[in-house]
Design a protein around this nucleic acid. Structure first.
Lengths: 156, 156
DNA sequence: TTCCTTAAGTCAACATAGTTGACGTGAGAA
DNA sequence: TTCTCACGTCAACTATGTTGACTTAAGGAA
């Protein structure tokens, strides 16, 4: 993609005047999120999937046999909002659901092999970006980044 | 807000099993973005405003007399998408637009005093979170964070 | 002056990602 | 048997975006 095309698509980093000390950091958070997710989103788009689908796959990959209700809690969305992307993933056989043996009213979700493959690829795109960035600053730099992000995340 | 309520609202940080080395970092990016913007978004919501409005105010604050077209480029959205939030801000007198003197077909945008006040407050909420996090890791830690985020942002 | 381009504005149709409310079904506990 | 719980689904709505088409007005070029 050419520079002009990137500018047109808003993919460049705008160089705005900084009014405050932390404006640069503020903008870096915005562009950082975009930089991490851009390639993954493009990959998912080729499959007709997007961020919500990836979020579901990511969580189920790390918590096999998770129930619908628990998944709703982790994602922080309503069951109605979960409904559509979840059904798409089931329909595409990226996810399976079966009733629990002892608790027959809860459903347990698992990734299929194909679902696992897609989750891994999409997340790999994101991890690859992080890896490259961490490699530039070394272990102590990476640790500092984690500490800062932890503090920001827990602020509330 | 109680812990249970936060869990229900998805405001906690889910503790998922880590399948890969960088999964923790990946999740921190997600929760970090949310942690930085949460208080600002809540403030904006009390005014009937949201992220797109804040983005406009932020950019115009740092580039007074910016044209509509330049604003579209910086934000990376279509003029139709800009239309609605921009008109709301003009209607609320948070923003003014006047024709350029020499280039009468371009419009120049500026913040009003009220618009400036709101932009500052909203951004302050975000900077406050960053400040608190940076204070915990010192100057070198903050610099490392900036370096990592810069590398992530520029990845493409 | 006429013609072409540019900047902005607006209308319509659509996609996606979410919300709340209401209601249904079937499982299991009291 | 009745009540609650987990899940499912329908409807209506909000918000933030997209593309395409068309208009208006300004201004440069022929």
């Amino acid at each position: 993609m050419k520079k002009a095309a990137k500018r047109a698509a808003g993919l460049h980093r705008a160089s705005l005047t900084k009014l405050h000390d932390l404006d640069a950091a503020l903008e870096l958070m915005y562009y950082g999120w975009r930089g991490m997710t851009l390639a993954a989103d493009q990959y998912l788009a080729t499959l007709g999937l997007s961020r919500p689908h990836h979020r579901i796959l990511y969580v189920v990959a790390r918590q096999p046999d998770i129930s619908i209700g628990a998944l709703i809690d982790v994602l922080g969305i309503s069951k109605q909002a979960l409904n559509r992307p979840l059904n798409l993933l089931l329909q595409r056989n990226l996810l399976t659901s079966k009733r629990s043996v002892e608790q027959h009213r809860t459903k347990l979700l698992r990734l299929t092999a194909e679902g696992q493959r897609i989750e891994q690829r999409a997340s790999d795109y994101e991890r690859k970006v992080l890896r490259a960035a961490f490699d530039r600053v070394g272990q102590t730099g990476a640790a500092a980044w984690m500490a800062v992000m932890g503090a920001i995340a827990d602020n509330n």
